[in-house]
Amino acid sequence: MRLIPGCILRELSGRHMLMVYPEDGSEAYALEVNGSFAFLVKTAKALGDFSAEDLGSALETEYGLSPAEASEETDKALAIWKEEGLLK
């Protein structure tokens, strides 16, 4: 699932949200990225085949993280998603 063309970032009141509109027409996702780059899935529906690698790639392109930063944050995301039972 390609993410990059359908990514929209928003910032308001110090909060950042990444919205993903997959090109294949599958369900859109929204992820909040807080100031410390720890990802909390606030409004994402079932993750399906949305992967941490996809997220890391989007964060590099849309949020300007370096590959190392993106990789670190996707590891954090994986840990949080496991904890919240969101990984399938």
């Binding site: 928003r10 308001l12 949200m17």
Partner: peptide, 9 residues
């Protein structure tokens, strides 16, 4: 703010 960001996206 969530609602406005999502709507605008």
């Amino acid at each position: 703010s969530t609602s406005l960001m999502l709507d605008s996206g």
